[in-house]
């Protein structure tokens, strides 16, 4: 892992849906960089293009043009994949969503374990690390419970543990506190900040929750598909 390279660099990213008179520009000329160990908030009204930007950075929605580099390795040049995207996601990216999206037929432990097993980690090693991560997130005692038996906060912490499973370069979180009360929402945001600072992962969080903005090192506003402004005084570059 290249620990000196930024977690992600996005250059002149543009995403257009449709064509002709039905053409919609979802993201226009967006550039940003997230350093390792940095937590960045992405704010914007509904339809501003932040989810499109997030899915492009998650390598599941290729841009129309622009370039994405993760951990110093060029990944996407416009819609053209420069690497095996699924394998790249497996090794470098972690995801947390508004809903925990745990696999319902796997226990909390197995939900974390599976993320490592698909990355060719031996089952016994994956199990050990999964238990360690659940311990780190204070849900170790629920390891053998199915998701249905967990509270919303516990589910979200298991989802965070899953995102951390392969020690990712970048964690992308899409409104991870939307389904939680303010106390638990705050706890999750602080957890992301801790993960960024202690584990050296870049973290990008899409959020509407203005009560937790203080946890971010930097905040980006997205409006009409463009990154409009920067807050919290970060030195990280942006367009």
């Amino acid at each position: 892992m290249n620990i000196t390279a930024p977690a992600i660099t996005v250059e002149h990213l543009r995403k257009v849906y449709g064509s002709g008179h039905t053409e919609v520009v979802a993201v226009r000329d967006a550039s940003l960089e997230i350093a390792r160990g940095e937590i960045v908030g992405l704010l914007g009204p509904s339809g501003s293009g932040k989810s499109t930007l997030l899915t492009a950075m998650a390598l599941i929605n290729p841009p129309t043009s622009g370039r994405i580099t993760i951990n110093g390795e060029a990944v996407l040049d416009g819609p053209r994949a420069l690497v095996d995207l699924r394998a790249f996601r497996r090794r470098h990216l972690g995801f947390v969503f508004q809903k925990a999206n745990l696999i319902p037929f796997l226990t909390a432990l197995e939900n974390v374990q599976i993320a490592m097993e698909v990355n060719d980690v031996a089952p016994w090693a994956a199990r050990t690390r999964a238990l360690e991560l659940l311990g780190y997130l204070d849900v170790e005692e629920r390891a053998r419970n199915l998701p249905a038996a967990l509270s919303g906060g516990e589910q979200q912490r298991v989802a965070v543990a899953r995102a951390l499973a392969n020690d990712p370069t970048l964690i992308l979180a899409d409104e991870p506190t939307a389904a939680l009360d303010s106390t638990r929402g705050r706890q999750v945001m602080e957890l992301f900040a801790r993960i960024a600072h202690e584990r050296g992962a870049g973290v990008l969080v899409v959020t509407h929750d203005h009560r937790t903005l203080d946890v971010f090192d930097r905040i980006l506003d997205v409006e009409d598909g463009a990154i409009q402004c920067r807050k919290n005084g970060s030195a990280a570059p942006e367009a």
């Binding site: 998650a58 790249f88 696999i103 319902p104 599976i114 993320a115």
Partner: peptide, 16 residues
């Protein structure tokens, strides 16, 4: 479908 999508998102290979 959602579970399969999640498996793909976290990088599970097709044989899985």
């Amino acid at each position: 479908v959602r579970d399969i999508a999640l498996l793909k998102l976290i990088g599970a290979r097709n044989p899985v």
